[in-house]
Design a protein around this nucleic acid. Structure first.
Length: 420
RNA sequence: GCGACCGUAGCUCAGCUGGUUAGAGCGCCGGUUUGUGGUACCGGAGGUCGGGGGUUCGAACCCCCUCGGUCGCCCCA
């Protein structure tokens, strides 16, 4: 079988990339197809975005100090000396397009897309360097109804994928800019007082990203996180009202949710609503879909202030949950032709083409030892087996098994028109 | 970036305290049988034991480095 040239060594795949095949590939396709179907129900318009952008698109919108920008981006110079970056997320590029392509005229604009993203991270379960996401955004809508619509769509997507069980919607609000800043300051004061007793990670977070201390997994931090200042005490009346309308809308639409006061977003541009659909079935990578409102992003990119909400979902993680359900995606072989004599090959080829033109899922076995072709054909597990051979110098086909209708009827009709 | 475990045939794995030419099942290829819903038997191809270096009379096995995988931490979908 393998006659490799010893002097040439095959390059290996890049770490953290995947060659998706078989049931995994089918589950992946199922996730994308379901997303496409649901997105149309909600009238989200499909967009295709470039895989790379000028580096500034991401560094300005995500924040220079975030881990994603400072150490996880695939950035490089092109031949003109321009710094480019493979997209680590969708939102920044879509925001850029909204500004540079005049999409303001369509506001409020509902868009959806999906495709590969790149992050230089250590691969682990459900995390890759080239990974794939579904993405949905509503741009130019300040109303909480936009948040609600996005969440209801996400909820329906998970249900139609058949994986909603065991997945919970965790919901929080970060308040408006002023609320968020006040809360953040209070958290810093509170944790600074006990800094020495916090984990090393959290001591570090205190300066960089104090909100993150709240969902620290380190047991040393737990005693302090419980009594930490809560966002609710810092929300403006407007922010409270906004959040109440979001939760009210979810209740009206029949979407169950859980308040998660410690849920924060990693990226700087988030305001108000933050949410994650979380499962306990994927180990450490439990977030299956996440997002929130990012009213501050457009200005960070030099555009007019524009409210927006969005979410993204990891296709690999969704596909893993789908795969766990044991769903079968292979399209079953309806008819297989076993060619037991090479003299009848053209006859069989003509027949196979005719079958496929009649929309049969068909295949043919015509290689290897003629005597073993029948067994090979049987092993393919087709509903129907057709043996082709020579009889007195004339190619002949014999139907070896006829399945029950309606497939059997279709095959019978085909055989009659073929002339048996 | 940090930590733990793991890399033997296409796949799943065995290989004793380091000891001749590294094995099995499945799969693949061929032959015989059977002559019709996955038969049985026989034979065959296929392995730089992830890669490199070291220790040793001798390394798949011990040590170091490296590449990859898996699962955590960080971060994040």
């Amino acid at each position: 079988m393998s006659t490799q040239t010893p002097s040439i060594q095959t390059p290996q795949a890049i770490r953290g990339t995947q060659d998706i095949f078989g049931p995994d590939a089918e589950a992946f396709a199922f996730v994308v197809e379901t997303f496409e179907r649901v997105r149309k129900l909600y009238r989200f318009r499909r967009v295709e975005m470039p895989v790379f952008e000028k580096t500034a698109v991401f560094s300005r919108s995500l924040g220079e100090t975030t881990d994603v920008v400072s150490k996880e981006m695939y950035s490089f110079e092109d031949r003109g000396g321009e710094s480019l970056t493979l997209r680590p997320e969708f939102t920044a590029g879509i925001a850029r397009a909204f500004i540079t392509d005049g999409w303001q005229q369509y506001a409020p604009l509902k868009v959806a897309t999906h495709g590969p993203l790149f992050r230089y991270e250590r691969p682990q379960k459900g995390r890759y360097r080239q990974f794939h996401q579904l993405d949905a955004e509503v741009i130019g809508a300040a109303e909480p109804q936009a948040d609600v619509e996005l969440l209801v769509m996400a909820d329906q997507l998970l249900k139609e994928l058949g994986i909603a069980e065991g997945v919970t919607l965790q919901l929080n609000t970060l308040g408006d800019g002023a609320s968020r800043d006040a809360w953040r300051a209070a958290l810093i004061d509170y944790f600074r007082a006990v800094k020495g007793d916090l984990s090393e990670d959290s001591q570090d977070r205190l300066e960089r990203n104090p909100l993150r201390i709240l969902d620290s997994k380190d047991p040393r931090d737990k005693p302090f996180t419980a009594d930490a200042p809560r966002i609710d005490d810092y929300l403006s009346d407007e922010a409270k009202d906004f959040f109440a309308k979001v939760t009210g809308g979810l209740d009206a639409a029949g979407v169950t949710w859980t308040r998660a006061p410690a849920l924060v977003r990693g990226l700087d541009y988030y305001r108000h609503t933050a949410f994650e659909f979380v499962t306990d079935r994927l180990g450490a990578q439990g977030t299956v879909l996440g997002g929130g409102r990012y009213d501050g992003l457009m200005e960070a990119l030099g555009g007019a202030a524009t409210p927006a909400v969005g979410w993204a979902a990891g296709i690999e993680r969704l596909a893993m949950l789908v795969g766990e359900k044991g769903q079968k995606f292979d399209n079953p072989l309806e008819i297989v032709i076993a060619v037991e004599d090479d003299a009848a090959l053209d006859y069989a080829t003509r027949m196979l083409a005719a079958l496929r033109r009649e929309n049969f899922v068909a295949d043919m076995i015509a290689s290897g030892s003629p005597r073993k072709r029948y067994d090979k054909a049987v092993k393919l597990g087709a509903a129907c087996l057709l043996v082709v051979g020579m009889q007195e110098g004339i190619p002949m086909s014999k139907l070896r098994s006829t399945p029950i209708s309606p497939l059997g009827d279709r095959i019978e009709r085909f055989m009659d028109s073929w002339g048996r």
